[in-house]
Simulated assay, not measured.
Amino acid sequence: MNQLQKVLVVDDNPVNLAVLYEILEDDYEVEYARNGHDAIRIAEECLVDIILLDVMMPGMDGLEVCRRLRANLTLKDAIIIMVSAKAMPSERAAGIVAGADDYITKPFNEMHLLETIRRCQRISRSTIGQTATSVSNEENA
Rank of each mutant, 00 (worst) to 15 (best):
E45K: 14
D77H: 15
L63W: 06
N35F: 06
L75D: 15
E64W: 05
H37P: 13
V55M: 05
N16F: 07
L63G: 05
G36C: 10
V30E: 15
A43N: 08
Y32T: 05
Q3D: 13
L73S: 12
Q5H: 00
A39D: 10
Q5A: 05
V9W: 00
N35S: 09
H37E: 11
A39F: 00
V55T: 14
P58S: 14
Y32R: 06
D27N: 09
V15T: 10
V30Y: 03
L73M: 12
R41N: 10
L69R: 13
D38Y: 04
L53S: 05
A43P: 11
L17S: 00
R41G: 03
R68N: 03
V65W: 08
V65N: 08
P14M: 15
D49H: 04
E31A: 13
N16R: 08
V7C: 06
L20I: 07
D38Q: 07
V15F: 02
D38G: 03
G62W: 02
P14T: 11
I23S: 00
V7M: 03
D11V: 09
I42L: 10
L20T: 02
D27P: 00
I23M: 05
V7K: 03
N13F: 11
T74F: 01
D12I: 09
V10P: 09
V30D: 11
I40F: 07
D54K: 01
L69K: 15
L24C: 05
N35T: 11
G59K: 12
E22A: 03
A33P: 02
G36S: 02
N72G: 09
R67N: 08
T74K: 06
L17C: 11
L4P: 08
L8V: 07
V48D: 14
D26R: 03
D27V: 01
I42H: 00
L8N: 10
V15W: 01
G36M: 01
A18V: 06
V48A: 04
L52M: 12
N2E: 14
P14W: 09
A43Q: 07
T74Q: 09
I42M: 09
V48R: 01
E31D: 11
T74H: 11
D54V: 01
L20K: 00
I40D: 14
R70Y: 14
V55R: 04
N2M: 10
M56I: 12
R68K: 07
L75H: 15
A39I: 04
N16H: 05
N13S: 13
L52N: 00
D77L: 07
L73R: 12
L17R: 01
D61P: 06
M57E: 07
I40P: 08
G59Y: 06
E29I: 01
Y32H: 11
E64Y: 03
Y21K: 07
A33Q: 13
L53M: 15
K76T: 11
A39T: 02
M1L: 10
V10C: 04
Y21G: 02
Q3S: 13
V48F: 00
I51G: 15
I51W: 09
K6R: 14
V55E: 06
V15D: 03
